[in-house]
């Protein structure tokens, strides 16, 4: 079962985990990404390409389903202006055994960082704003799965 959502609403990490636990696997792996409140950061703005976002997340999830014997995948990605400490993204996988669940979860977060149409902008206490640049190490992290 693939469950995908993108939008401004916050999500309940525990409820998402419980839903994955109910899918009959022996192993659930999850990743939650949060806004780091360092360097005077007051907010993180997440822009996206709404017509494409869920489609791309669906393609990434389907490719994980092909590579690992998974019983379920959940991907939730927030958009809009988020405060320090806020949840940004949740990735969860269910499989019979831990290796597939952990590897697929790692694959999904690496891929969505470099393939899903989201853009982050930092807002600072002094009024400064800065679009985050794509990082070569994120591409390298994705490429190790190719």
């Amino acid at each position: 079962m693939i469950r995908i959502a993108a939008g401004p609403e916050d999500f309940d990490s525990a409820a998402l985990v419980v839903a994955l636990e109910a899918l009959g696997g022996g192993a659930v792996a999850t990743f939650t990404g949060l806004v780091r409140g360092e360097g005077g950061l007051t907010g993180l703005q997440l822009d996206h390409y709404p017509a494409m976002t869920e489609k791309v997340l669906g393609v990434i999830a389907a490719s994980a389903m092909e590579r690992w014997p998974l019983k379920g995948i959940t991907i939730v990605h927030r958009t809009g202006l988020l405060a320090p400490g806020a949840r940004i993204v949740f990735v969860g996988t269910v499989s019979a055994h831990r290796a597939a669940a952990l590897e697929a979860c790692h694959f999904l977060i690496d891929w969505l960082k470099t393939e899903a149409p989201f853009w982050k902008k930092e807002h600072f206490a002094d009024g400064g704003q800065c679009w985050i640049e794509a990082r070569a190490e994120d591409d390298a992290a994705k490429d190790k799965w190719v």
Binding site: Y49, M52, I88, V89, L112, A116, W119, W131, D138
Partner: peptide
């Protein structure tokens, strides 16, 4: 038309073309 392409992709007949920086989600 909501599929990622390279610079050499043809645009004839396209309904929607999006231009943006490299993505930085996750």
């Amino acid at each position: 038309d909501q599929a990622f392409v390279q610079g050499d992709a043809a645009i004839a007949g396209a309904k929607e073309i999006a231009l943006f920086p490299p993505v930085t989600g996750g």
